[in-house]
Design a binder for these strands. Structure first.
Lengths: 150, 150
DNA sequence: AATGAAATTAAGTAGCT
DNA sequence: AGCTACTTAATTTCATT
């Protein structure tokens, strides 16, 4: 893992806000030439600092999409099984994000499904086997986008 | 709010995975000309179906960043105060995502801070006033990216 | 009203100092 | 790193359905 200087950090900050900015725009904001900015962005992609660039879709346009925040409790006596579980969960298409957390729960995942039926199927398939001890489902009724109208 | 046809939905699906795909790549995947694809993408941006395009930064490169999943309990006797609260929270730079949920909690937010001290300051500043009744903090020890190495 | 093909404009990439 | 030439992609124009 290579390290970043302050220009790299500024670039990451900018691209996190808007990844479509041109070299010229980045150049003006961080004070390097356009070519230098874009060369650095290439490097940031290559070393994995930028994992990917993605469009954020407005929830209103996503179609009928159920999101559930699931808090998972895991038996702590078999650490290696926890690792296997994490690896398994993070590969599932339904799992949008996976967090290892402190508190009452051990893992928290954000699950995306087409419907509640699909979510029920998801839980039955993946959330009832050891080392999982139990889970709590917080069904998202509505997500409020960061900056937007309604 | 205008509506989307199946080409639009395919485009959104693709751009959610990778927003850097060229017109030609999109063209091959969805079966329209490059120009048509890019025209549609422009429209999707304009009508707000694409909220924004952003770089996803690897947690390992984000610097010391504390994330906390906060489950908020809200007094239900003043619905209008809940709206005010939601509006306030969603504008805060620390709040990455805001969900209205069912279950023990009423709202769930994902909070991003530079440090635990900052998180403590955040809670003191925003999470101790009505209509908030209480909150539970799940401090993220580690987030596992969807597709990646370690 | 929206498409595809072609021409124009703009951006990203690579080589050199 | 910057500058410049080169390559590629995005945008606009236009004829067609």
């Amino acid at each position: 893992m290579e390290d970043l200087d302050s220009f790299d950090r500024l670039l990451l900050e900018q691209l996190q806000i808007d990844s479509r900015q041109t070299g010229r725009e980045l150049s003006e904001k961080i004070g390097l030439s356009s070519a230098a900015c874009l060369r650095r962005v290439q490097r940031l992609r290559k070393i994995g600092a930028i994992e990917r660039e993605a469009a954020i879709i407005s929830p209103r346009f996503e179609g009928a999409l159920t999101r559930v925040i699931v808090l998972l409790s895991v038996a702590r006596d078999h650490p290696q099984r926890l690792d296997v579980l994490k690896q398994k969960l993070r590969r599932l298409k339904e799992v949008e994000r996976l967090f290892y957390v402190t508190g009452d729960a051990d893992l928290a995942i954000i699950v995306k499904c087409a419907s509640m039926e699909d979510y029920a199927a998801f839980t039955e398939r993946y959330l009832f086997e050891p080392p999982l001890k139990g889970f709590e489902s917080l069904v998202v009724l509505r997500e409020y986008p960061k900056e937007s109208d309604d």
